[in-house]
Design a protein around this nucleic acid. Structure first.
Lengths: 329, 329
DNA sequence: AAATACCATGCAACCGTTTGCATTAACAGT
DNA sequence: ACTGTTAATGCAAACGGTTGCATGGTATTT
C-alpha cells in the first residue's frame, strides 16, 4: 500500500538498486538518471521506510540518552533538559533520532536491551550507570558518559565540567571580594561531583574550611544555615552546592536580618532560570549544560563513525557575578 | 555474527517460526517446546533484533514526543519535562521507546518525516504544531495533542488541564480571602491557554477586571507590577500567569514595602520546584503535568491499538495554599 | 583499431523477523 | 475402524531496503 523503492524504480525506468544509490549518494549516477529518479520520487511522494533501511544497513539511526531518575523532578532537572536539547540538535543535524530511556529501576537491563536489540547505535549515559557488569555486557558498543564516572578508567569516554576548578573559582571569588571565613553548604559527599567541588573549594579556602552536607532540599539547607549563622564563629560567605541550597541559605539570612551581600556572601553552582530572580540575584558558577550536551553528542558520533579512540573532555566553568556577592573596599 | 532466531531454532530443534511464536506468545505451544526454546535462548544469550521485528511487523515500537522549542529554556520547561517523564513510564510499560523531536524550525516537515518514514507508531504533539496542512498530511495517523489546540475541531484528540477552571479557582480564592480588587498579570494574550485562564479569572473577578500582559519574563512582570502598585487604585491581589511573573511581582512588592500576603495577595499558575522557596512561598494553581503526560500517553496507545474513537480529556487544576495569600478576618 | 580502464547500472542475495497456509499427528464421535 | 476436528509445528513468502558482483558500454590509451 505504501509506495516502495520498487514503485519508484519502475516509474523511473531503472532498477531499485539505482534508486537506493541515488538516495544514499554513494555511487556515481548520471545526472539524467538522477533527475528521473528524483521526479519519480516526487510524483509518487515517496518516503523511504526507515525500518527496512535499518534492517538492511544494520544501523538503527537512533542514539539513546539514558536518565537515572527515580522521580519526575530529577528528570526535569535543568541540567538534564538543557543537555538533552543540545544533544537533540546535534543528532538532528546527522539525521539521527534521540531515544530517551529512564533506566533507574532495572539494574542496567534497560540499557542492555537497547544495545542488544539494536535499538540504538550509541548511548549517552549518566555516571551512575557506569558499572563493570554493564560495561562488560555492552563491550565495544559506542557510548559516552555525561559526567565524570566515580570509578575512573582510562578507556571510558566522558564529558564533564570541571567541578574542582569551579569550586576553586567560587572560593577564590569570595576571598577576592574580601569575605573572611568561608564554608561549603549542601550536597551529598558521596557523590563524585560534590567531592570534586569541595576539593576545589578547599584548595582556595584552606584544607580545613568547613563543609556542611545536606539532603539536597532547600529546607535542609535552610535549617543548617539558620543554626550555623546564629553560632559564634559563623562563616561570612558560602559556596552552595546548588541553587536550592542557596535558596535555603538566602531565606535564613533574611530571617536573621543578615544582609546579602553586605554581611554574607553567596555563590552557588548551577544556573537555574530562576537564579536571576532571587533576592538578591545569585552569583553563580555557571555550568554550560548545553555545551556539555553538544560535546557529548559530537563525541558519541565520532565513536559511532569510527570505533577507535576514546576521549575525556573537561569543560571549564565560569563565574557569573550578580548581587549576592560584592567587592568590599 | 549476532545470534539470530534461526540459531535458537536450530539449537532447540524446532523451526524459527516456532521460536517467533514462543517469543510473541501468539499461538498455542506445547510446554515442552516452550521450555526447549527458552533454554536455547538462554544458552545462546539471544536478543531479538528489534529492527527486523519492526520491518516484519510494520510497527516501529516507538512513539514520538514533539517539542516546539526555539531555545533550550523552553525545552527545559518543567511542564514539558515532567510530562515527558510520565510519558516515558507509560511507554516503557508497553515496551515502547520514546523519541523526542524538536520540530520548531521546520514547518512540520520534521513531524511528517517521523510519520512517513515510519519511525514512530504515534505522536504526542504540542498545540502549536496542529495546523491543517500537517493534519491533512498525516491523515489517520494516531496522535494526541498535549494541550488544547487553539483551533478546535471535533476530530482532534487532546489532553489538557482546565485552564478556565484554574483561572476561576484562583480568582475565587483571592475573593474568599477577602482581597478587594483583582488583576491578572503576565502571559501572552495570543496564546490559547492564557486566554482561557483570563476568561476563568474574569468569570469570578468580574468581566472588567484588569489584565496586564507581559513578554513572559520576570523582568517585565516586575516593571509592570511596580508601575501598577504605585498608581492610585492599585489592585489588592494578583493572579499570575506563571511562576516567573509571580517572581517579578514579589520583587516589586518587596521594593515598595508592600507586605505579601497582608497587603497584596498572590496566586500563580504552574508549580515550579522553586515556587515553594520564594519569600513568601507561593500559593499555586497546580497543574498536574505528570498526570497530563500519563493521560496523553495512555490515550495515544488506545488510538494505536484501535484506530477508532477520539477523545478529549480535561483535567481539573487544584489550589495549593501557601503563604502568598491569607484569609482575612 | 585493438586493448584497457572505468563508469553507470542491473541482478540477486541478504538483513532477521512475522505470518498465512499447509501438514502432521492425535483424539473424539459415530 | 473410519472420518472430522483440532492442536502443534513446519514451510516459505513477505517486509523494503542495501550492496557485492557482474555486465555492457563508452572513453582513454597505445
Amino acid at each position: 500500500m505504501a509506495v516502495t523503492i520498487h514503485d519508484v524504480a519502475k516509474r523511473a525506468g531503472v532498477n531499485s538498486s539505482t534508486v537506493s544509490r541515488v538516495i544514499n549518494g554513494k555511487a556515481t549516477i548520471t545526472p539524467e538518471t538522477k533527475e528521473k529518479v528524483y521526479s519519480a520520487m516526487r510524483e509518487l511522494d515517496y518516503h523511504p521506510n526507515a525500518l527496512a533501511r535499518s534492517l538492511a544497513s544494520g544501523l538503527s539511526g537512533a542514539i539513546g540518552v539514558v536518565v537515572d531518575a527515580q522521580d519526575a523532578d530529577a528528570f526535569s532537572n535543568v541540567f538534564f533538559s538543557r543537555s538533552l536539547f543540545a544533544i537533540e540538535q546535534v543528532a538532528q543535524s546527522r539525521g539521527y533520532q534521540v531515544i530517551i530511556a529512564n533506566g533507574a529501576n532495572s539494574h542496567g537491563t534497560r540499557v542492555e536491551t537497547l544495545v542488544k536489540e539494536r535499538k540504538v547505535d550509541g548511548l549517552i549515559l549518566p555516571p551512575s550507570t557506569v558499572k563493570p557488569a554493564l560495561m562488560r555486557s555492552i563491550g565495544e558498543f559506542p557510548y559516552v558518559v555525561l559526567g565524570m564516572p566515580d570509578t575512573l578508567r582510562g578507556d571510558t569516554c566522558w564529558v564533564d565540567n570541571n567541578n574542582e576548578q569551579g569550586g576553586e573559582l567560587a572560593a577564590r571569588h569570595l576571598l577576592d571580594c574580601g569575605y573572611g571565613s568561608l564554608a561549603y553548604l549542601g550536597g551529598d559527599q558521596k557523590r563524585g561531583f560534590t567531592k570534586r567541588r569541595v576539593r576545589g573549594f578547599r584548595k582556595a579556602a584552606g584544607e580545613h574550611a568547613p563543609v556542611y552536607s545536606t539532603d539536597g532540599t532547600a529546607e535542609d539547607a535552610y535549617a543548617a544555615a539558620s543554626k550555623l549563622l546564629k553560632s559564634e564563629n559563623a562563616p561570612c560567605a558560602f559556596v552552595c552546592n546548588d541553587n536550592l541550597s542557596a535558596f535555603g541559605l538566602l531565606r535564613a539570612c533574611r530571617e536573621l536580618s543578615l544582609p546579602v551581600p553586605a554581611r554574607v556572601g553567596v555563590v552557588a553552582f548551577d544556573n537555574y532560570p530562576l537564579a536571576e530572580y532571587t533576592d538578591p540575584p545569585l552569583t553563580i558558577v555557571d555550568i554550560d549544560t548545553a555545551m556539555l550536551g553538544e560535546q557529548s553528542a559530537r563525541l558519541l558520533f565520532r565513536r559511532i563513525d569510527n570505533r577507535t579512540g576514546c576521549q575525556q573532555i573537561m569543560l571549564s566553568t565560569a563565574l557569573i557575578e550578580r548581587k549576592s556577592t560584592e567587592r568590599m573596599k
